[in-house]
């Protein structure tokens, strides 16, 4: 049983923002509820008000306009996984969405919830960080747009204010020749919390060299981390098995430095090599081929 609270179901964004501005006492925004409802049941949260976004249909859309992808905060994991335009260069988002929970969680859970929840193991966060996404935060009479990396403050912490609602994530469309991947290591395939995850984006140049590489790791730090050393190492070179090993080593060294002497470090330092190897080969099969 859940502790009682006041429930609001505003029918417009204006109404929602005005509720957020005026309701007294602790309040929580309800999107998919897959994290909020169990937290309410366990009594970890006891808000006086719950503001449901259920009726804000415009937040359920994915739009591509003027070279940018806009993903509404209420877009579910299933929607992301099934969104056809994400089968190409942006497939890391679809892959990450498919790795979340099981089908039931994917039907309900939302990208907005995944972001605001700010779990170090949040599956969509490394892809969004690699995509250099920004988030839009609205409040009555104003809004602000922040890079996701800046928005995330660490384990369960973000810089969202009490009266704000995160309405969308936005990122620039990747070039058509780009390839991407997401690999997650959990204790099992389904319903598992990420132990390590990695998102990779590779943009090849005309001659087959890597023009740009972006790598982001999940669950090795309080928030996703980019791997500038490995990214720099890949840039301007041609993917092959020896470059793969160099990059994997750079990733593993970054992880070792990030984890310090945490209890999980001995395991993750080794395991991340497999994750990185798999992610890079998925993004560029040439990494796996002996020439």
């Amino acid at each position: 049983m859940l502790q009682p609270f006041n429930y609001h179901q505003p029918s417009s964004m204006e109404e929602a923002l005005s509720l957020m501005a005026t309701l007294p006492g602790p309040k929580k925004v309800l999107a998919g509820g897959t994290d909020l409802v169990p937290a309410l049941r366990r009594g970890e949260l006891s808000p006086a008000h719950v503001v449901s976004l259920k009726q804000l249909a415009e937040m359920r859309e994915i739009k591509i306009k003027e070279g940018r992808v806009h993903i509404g905060a209420l877009v579910t994991f299933s929607q992301l996984a099934e969104f056809r335009p994400f089968r190409g260069p942006h497939n890391l988002l679809a892959e990450a969405a498919l790795q979340v929970g099981g089908p039931q969680i994917r039907s309900q859970g939302t990208i907005g919830g995944n972001i605001v929840n700010a779990s170090p193991a949040g599956d969509l966060l490394p892809p969004l960080v690699a995509l250099e996404a920004e988030v839009r935060l609205c409040r009555a009479g104003g809004e602000r747009v922040l890079p996701l990396d800046e928005f995330l403050k660490g384990l369960g912490r973000t810089c969202i204010e009490q009266e704000e609602i995160l309405t969308e994530a936005v990122f620039p469309v990747l070039p058509g020749q780009a390839a991407s991947s997401f690999v997650k290591l959990g204790r099992r395939n389904s319903l598992a919390i990420s132990r390590i995850s990695m998102a990779a984006i590779l943009v090849p140049g005309a001659t087959g060299i890597i023009e740009e590489a972006r790598l982001a790791l999940g669950a090795v730090a309080p928030k996703p981390v980019r791997v500038p050393r490995a990214e720099a190492l890949l840039k301007g070179r041609r993917p092959d098995p020896s470059l793969l090993e160099e990059a994997v080593t750079a990733v593993a060294e970054t992880v070792a430095a990030t984890l310090g002497d945490r209890p999980s470090a001995p395991y993750k330092k080794v395991a991340v090599r497999g994750v990185a190897r798999e992610a890079l080969i998925k993004a560029a099969p040439q990494f796996g081929c002996k020439l």
Binding site: L2, Y7, G33, S52, K54, S78, P103, Q104, Q108
Partner: peptide
Amino acid sequence: LLNGRPVNACLVLAPE
């Protein structure tokens, strides 16, 4: 099934 999609009824607030 909620509109044909599987969900965990324990994670859905009734009014949702």
